[in-house]
């Protein structure tokens, strides 16, 4: 079965992103595929390369990056939700004349159309909210 995952809760404030990670690992372990993981609303903070949790806590952005590399996952962060919350890639940092950019490796910024496309192409869309 083809899954897509939507994460709308902020990492560390809500369990959404951590649960989505565990769910995604299980889905892949059972032989299903994940078409896309879409980070929306406060979920965009899962794509911050600057997250620096204590060592005895999981680094959620790093864990997504690692899972993406292992399984060629498409990690898409909603661009409109991201830029207003200060999650920028190099292009957006240039566009808004900001000094730095912080979108983590293996994530991309894109529009809500990617969520619609994921819904059309997937058998199941599972949302992890706040």
């Amino acid at each position: 079965m083809i899954f897509s995952i939507v994460v709308t809760g902020a990492p560390y404030s809500s369990q959404a992103s951590a649960s989505a990670l565990q769910f995604s690992r299980s889905v892949l372990k059972l032989g299903h595929s994940i078409h896309r993981v879409f980070f929306y609303a406060d979920g965009v903070h899962s794509g911050s390369a600057l997250a620096s949790p204590p060592q005895d806590e999981s680094n959620i952005p790093a864990e997504w990056s690692e899972l993406a590399r292992q399984h060629q996952l498409d990690l898409v962060v909603c661009i409109a939700a991201a830029v207003r919350r200060g999650i920028l890639d190099e292009n957006e940092a240039r566009r808004y004349e900001k000094k730095g950019h912080n979108l983590a490796a293996d994530f991309t910024l894109s529009g809500l159309g990617q969520l619609v496309e994921a819904g059309i192409l997937s058998d199941r869309v599972v949302t992890f909210g706040a």
Binding site: T8, Y40, A41, A80, L112, G113, V116, E117
Partner: peptide, 18 residues
Amino acid sequence: SAARDALDVALTFSVFEQ
């Protein structure tokens, strides 16, 4: 932001004529 987020998604779905 949930209400506005949901509406933005709704308008996008309709652009894709779903």
